[in-house]
Amino acid sequence: MSQKAKVAVIGDENSIMIFNAVGFYTYPIEKYSDVRKKIIELEKNKFSIIFLTENVASGIEDVLDKYKNQSFPIIIPIPNKDGALGIGMKAIKQNIEKAVGSDIL
């Protein structure tokens, strides 16, 4: 079973403009409150991977959790130009704790 995947990038305009050059769909976000709506919209449009810059991801952990155990869309936090905020790392730690019972790395 194989299909084509659509890849989207959500974030502040200055950070994600560059992904246009490589053929990803980019969706600049101005207000943080728009992020939720955008994710739901992208899910309806059958996007497989959504890269989300960490600064816009910080307020919407509940949305990230909701999609965590579904196959799609895969929401991946990425750093923006100011560097990483540790949201992605936190998710890894959470996974370890969930699976093993304690943080062993």
């Binding site: 079973m1 194989s2 299909q3 890849v7 246009n20 490589v22 053929g23 497989s48 991977i49």
Partner: peptide, 14 residues
């Protein structure tokens, strides 16, 4: 950057 010549094809396998 607005008009990309490239498109990236990503194929999913399960």
């Amino acid at each position: 950057l607005l008009c990309p010549e490239k498109t990236s094809d990503v194929v999913i396998n399960w």
